[in-house]
Design a protein around this nucleic acid. Structure first.
Length: 380
RNA sequence: UGGGAUGUAGCCAAGUGGUAAGGCACCAGACUUUGACUCUGGCAUUUCGAUGGUUCGAAUCCAUCCAUUCCAG
């Protein structure tokens, strides 16, 4: 009987994951990870539950305890608050300072769940680690591969693109073959305490927040102009370019008769936010980008025709990737894609096989860097 | 201060006697393990710059005042 440590979050997915492992005959132990401490981490502004008697993490722990109890398994508790801060959150903040749009959950999987937690499990004598992610791991002649979850609506392989390929052989994703609806059904049939608990969203381990206010705890606001790329006129004020992402519409506060506005770019040095109100698409399109820190999850030769997602839940886009330099991949998509954003992850797929992913560094349109394109237009 | 124009929710803006369109913003919800995008719903009934008047009835007509703005000076 293989000893498995399953990450139990207090939600349905990980609960059903643990149940399925038991059913499959594994020797299952659960572990609850505590990676965020609102008090220690100065998470005050924009925190909807800061005044509650019990913080959401503790509520989740109680739920996890109830689940473990109903399944008859032991629940360990591990604390990675420091690791999360050092490896995930510090990066998250510094990326924002650069005006980019990081994806903390990808780093959380890379550094916490499939590194710190993985090592913890191994050190405690567990052979395997399991989580409730919607993704699959298969073994072929080359080794282990990660595939998309069978439930196309819930597939979470995007978030797993940065995990070390070597952990795959010791990792289990029992939900990868299931639809979310089936997971709910199993939970209900087995009377799992959290069977009807709402799915959690927001930054993992931190939860839902008023994002602007949340960032305000860590990044000072800095007022600047919002500039219409067409007329080059100031159409509003922002409180800091780091609070916005490319393609964003809400939160600009621009009224008037020109319709809705979208963020199309920003300039950190000048503290300017660029927006467009009509035909915004042409300012959001790019046709190639450079990707750094590629984490390879499968063997393949470059250049490679495959598909890519540039944001979570984005549909697959046909692309060609080639090695640009030692650390950079060039990704081409001549059909043009909207709002490919530096800091976000580009994740590549060959059908269902996840090839790996990396961070979007720069985007281009017609061989001109996107930000340069806008900057030149504004100042010509 | 002479003459003209305009004053409708945060921003635009319909409405010219019959009892306040619409868009943007904003808010709420859906969706979602990243900041989105998208979708749904809400959003001026002690009110149409103010005060009087005409009328069965006015944001719509009249008078005065106030504010903004333009042209002459």
């Amino acid at each position: 009987m293989k000893k498995v440590l399953v990450g139990l979050s207090g939600g349905v997915d990980s609960a059903v994951c643990a149940y399925l492992l038991l059913k499959q005959g594994y020797d299952v132990t659960a572990a609850f990870m505590r990676n965020w401490d609102s008090a220690v981490n100065n998470d005050i502004l924009g925190n909807p539950t800061i005044k509650d008697d019990i913080c959401p993490q503790e509520k989740d722990y109680q739920d996890a305890l109830a689940v473990a109890d109903s399944l008859g398994i032991e629940l360990l508790r591990v604390d990675f608050v420091k690791e999360y801060w050092d490896d995930v959150f510090t990066n998250f903040i510094s990326e924002h300072q650069k005006g980019r749009t990081p994806n903390p959950d990808i780093l959380c999987n890379k550094y916490i769940k499939f590194d710190a937690f993985f090592d913890f499990a191994r050190s405690k004598g567990f052979e395997m680690v399991a989580t409730g992610h919607y993704a699959r791991i298969v073994k072929n002649e080359e080794g282990f591969l990660m595939l998309k979850g069978l439930d196309k609506n819930k597939d979470q392989s995007y978030f797993l693109a940065q995990i070390d390929r070597n952990v795959l052989k010791n990792t289990l994703f029992p939900l990868g073959e299931l639809d979310k609806s089936e997971v709910r059904e199993i939970a209900q049939e087995m009377n799992i305490p959290v069977a009807d608990k709402k799915d959690s969203t927001g930054i993992c381990f931190i939860g839902e927040r008023n994002f602007k206010e949340f960032l305000h705890n860590y990044l000072p606001s800095k007022e600047g102009n919002i500039i219409d790329v067409l007329t080059k006129e100031v159409v509003g004020k922002h409180m800091g370019v780091m609070y916005y992402t490319i393609g964003q519409r809400k939160g600009l506060g621009i009224g008037g008769d020109r319709g809705r506005w979208f963020v199309i770019g920003k300039n950190v040095e000048n503290n300017e936010l660029y927006v467009a109100s009509q035909n915004e698409d042409i300012w959001l399109y790019s046709d190639s980008c450079l990707v750094s820190g590629f984490n390879r999850l499968a063997d393949f030769a470059m250049p490679k025709q495959c598909s890519a997602k540039f944001r979570y839940r984005q549909s697959d886009n046909p692309v060609t990737i080639e090695q640009y330099s030692e650390d950079l991949l060039l990704v081409k998509y001549p059909q043009k894609i909207k709002a490919v954003t530096p800091g976000q992850q580009a994740v590549f797929y060959d059908k269902d096989i996840c090839l790996g992913g990396g961070v979007i560094e720069k985007t281009f349109i017609g061989a001109i860097e996107h930000s340069e394109h806008i900057f030149k237009h504004i100042h010509e």
